[in-house]
Computed example of a mutant assay.
Amino acid sequence: MSKISLKDVRKTYGGDIEVIKGVSLDIDDGELVVLVGPSGCGKSTLLRMIAGLEAITSGEIAIGDRVVNRLEPSDRDIAMVFQNYALYPHMSVRQNLAYGLKNRNVPKAEIDQRIQSAARSLEIEPFLDRKPRQLSGGQRQRVAMGRAIVREPAAFLFDEPLSNLDAKLRVQMRVEIKRLQRSLATTSVYVTHDQMEAMTLADKLVVLNGGRIEQMGSPIDLYEKPATTFVASFIGSPSMNLIKVNAESGITMPSNISAAAGSMTIGIRPEDLHLADAEQAGSFGAKVRVQAVELVGAESYVYGALTDGQTIIFRVAGRSNFALDRECHVQADPDKLHLFAPDGKRIDPN
């Protein structure tokens, strides 16, 4: 059993600088939870507290059935994968994988079996006798993961492990991490600032903001029903359009929400906006002047300005031939709108 539980965990520096502000979180056995948020939100600090690399100020952290607040990192039965690989440069891949097991007096036959099994899973068997300097960045990250796997820990902790890789390798490695985590069924906590990485990897997504949990749930739940404008703007690429409706914006609103629109922020995903020749009754509509077009392959994102200068983004299929400064009209169905109160919290129509 390797459930991880955090109860009202706090971290304060210098007596009055609180960076983790009462985080409570349950991570189920075998679940992959991703902590995501902007720089300075507390995600890496929280991970280091779970690992025991950072002392907690108050609260409780349990791994399995043990409260680990006062346990050393080596006694917590966790394995951590860092962004800088942390491999011993003078050792071969095989020696790097074996090092932690030898320190725990694991029998040699078992060490060899664990290394072969991990190397086979990670496809690094041909590199076992090479030194880290003879490997590519992606191969070194596989070795770092292999060193965690051979430990057979209660939990894996990943601290932005893919941030040093190029874009193509990041995609390849996050698929590999997801596959391995599912096959090993080991409880995992993964930290990243990359919301695309978070969306594709997570069983449960936890968005942190200023040392607090802003929202948590499945990736699709957070994408389709963001609880706040912060989550709406952070999850999704490009992010959700957040529009302040006023007399100068040139926006038409569905009649059922138009009366209150002045005090709300309206959210619309770029893919939920479509071009229209004429205004359709009951829809959200806006006149847009094209400012930039971003081609991303099979589709394009058009960046435009409303009449009051607010930016709005919408998606069109294929290679767009939109001319700059062209005026067009975009619309969205009422059920695609997200409504947020002045304090940034979501308003559900019913």
Rank of each mutant, 00 (worst) to 15 (best):
residue 4 I to H: 04
residue 6 L to M: 14
residue 10 R to M: 10
residue 11 K to R: 07
residue 14 G to D: 13
residue 16 D to Q: 11
residue 18 E to N: 06
residue 23 V to L: 01
residue 25 L to H: 04
residue 26 D to W: 05
residue 27 I to P: 00
residue 28 D to A: 12
residue 37 G to R: 01
residue 37 G to A: 02
residue 38 P to H: 03
residue 49 M to H: 03
residue 62 A to V: 08
residue 69 N to W: 10
residue 79 A to P: 09
residue 80 M to E: 11
residue 81 V to C: 08
residue 81 V to Y: 02
residue 84 N to F: 13
residue 87 L to F: 13
residue 87 L to W: 02
residue 88 Y to K: 15
residue 102 K to R: 14
residue 104 R to S: 07
residue 104 R to F: 07
residue 105 N to Y: 07
residue 108 K to A: 10
residue 109 A to N: 15
residue 110 E to R: 10
residue 114 R to H: 14
residue 121 S to H: 13
residue 123 E to A: 15
residue 127 F to V: 02
residue 129 D to I: 06
residue 131 K to D: 02
residue 135 L to D: 03
residue 136 S to K: 03
residue 137 G to R: 03
residue 137 G to H: 00
residue 143 V to I: 04
residue 149 I to E: 01
residue 155 A to R: 00
residue 156 F to D: 01
residue 158 F to C: 09
residue 164 N to R: 03
residue 165 L to R: 05
residue 166 D to K: 12
residue 168 K to P: 06
residue 171 V to Q: 11
residue 185 A to G: 11
residue 187 T to Y: 01
residue 188 S to N: 05
residue 189 V to D: 04
residue 197 E to I: 09
residue 199 M to S: 04
residue 212 R to T: 15
residue 217 G to C: 13
residue 219 P to C: 12
residue 223 Y to R: 07
residue 227 A to T: 07
residue 235 I to E: 00
residue 237 S to M: 11
residue 239 S to M: 03
residue 240 M to T: 04
residue 264 M to Q: 04
residue 274 H to R: 15
residue 274 H to W: 09
residue 278 A to K: 15
residue 288 V to D: 06
residue 289 R to S: 13
residue 292 A to L: 08
residue 293 V to I: 07
residue 295 L to I: 10
residue 298 A to S: 15
residue 302 V to Q: 01
residue 303 Y to N: 03
residue 308 D to P: 04
residue 311 T to R: 15
residue 318 G to E: 05
residue 328 C to W: 01
residue 335 D to R: 11
residue 338 H to D: 03
residue 349 P to L: 10
